[in-house]
Amino acid sequence: MLELQKVSLEIQGDIDFEILKKINLKFYEKKIYVVTGPNGGGKSSLAKTIMGVYRPTSGQILLDGLDITSMNISERARMGIGYAFQSPPRFKGIKVKELLNMAASHNPEKVNICDLLYDVGLCSQDYLNRDVDTSLSGGEMKRIEIATVLARNLKIAVFDEPEAGIDLWSFQKLAETFRNIHMKYDTTIILISHQERIMELADEIIIMSNGMVSAQSERDIILAGIMNNDACACSAKCAKGVGHNAECVG
C-alpha cells in the first residue's frame, strides 16, 4: 500500500510555484487507479514524486508503512516502485534487448523479453537489436518504455500517459496487458491518462487539477460525472464561453 500524507511540492524560481498542494492519497494492493485531469494539473509531478525524481517540499510518502520520503530513485526502485516516463529518454549504443534485460535483471522470476515486446505490440524479430536511439519513433519508444516496467516485479507501477503514440490496433493489446498484470500480480497500477478506454480499466479514478485532488471515487461515478459535464475541470480564468466574434488577444 502506498500512502501520500500531505505531500506538497514547490518549485523555486523567479516566482515560487506550488505544483502539488498537500496531497493525501492511498493506493491499495491489486487495484488499478487512473489519475486524470486538465493539463498542468500536477499528474506527472505526482508520478515523479512517487518515483523519487522530485523530493517533496513537505509531507511524507509511506510504502507498506515504511517512510520512503528521503529515499532516492534507485532505492525506491529496489523497494518495488516503477515508472514509465511520459517522454522516455533515448540512449546511444544501447539496444532494446539490453535495456529490457537490464530492466528484468532484478526480477527473481525469469522474464522472456520477446513476450514483453509482444505484450506491447512489437515484433521481437524487428526490435531486439535496434538501438534505443533517435531511429525509433515516438510510439515505438513509448511501447519499449512500458515494456521496461512490465519486465519488473513491482509493488507500485506508474504509467504516465501510456496510450500516447499507441495506434488503435495495439491499444486493445495494451489494455489487455494491464488487465493481465492486475490478474497475475498484486501490483498496484497507477495510470495517468486522458483516455476513456483506459479509465474503463480503473477501479478508482482520481481527478487532479491545480495541484490538488479535486475528486476521487469509483470509476462509474466519476465517469458519469465527466461525460455529463461539458465544462472543463480547469480552475484558471479564461475567455471560454465568449462568443465567436470576440477579439483574439495574445
Partner: peptide
C-alpha cells in the same frame, strides 16, 4: 534517472551509459 528507476545506482547508471 531512467536507469536508476530500474534499480541501478547512479554510478552503475553512469557506467552503463558511458560504455554504451
Amino acid at each position: 534517472i531512467k536507469l536508476m528507476s530500474l534499480g541501478f545506482t547512479e554510478q552503475e547508471a553512469e557506467d552503463t551509459i558511458l560504455s554504451g
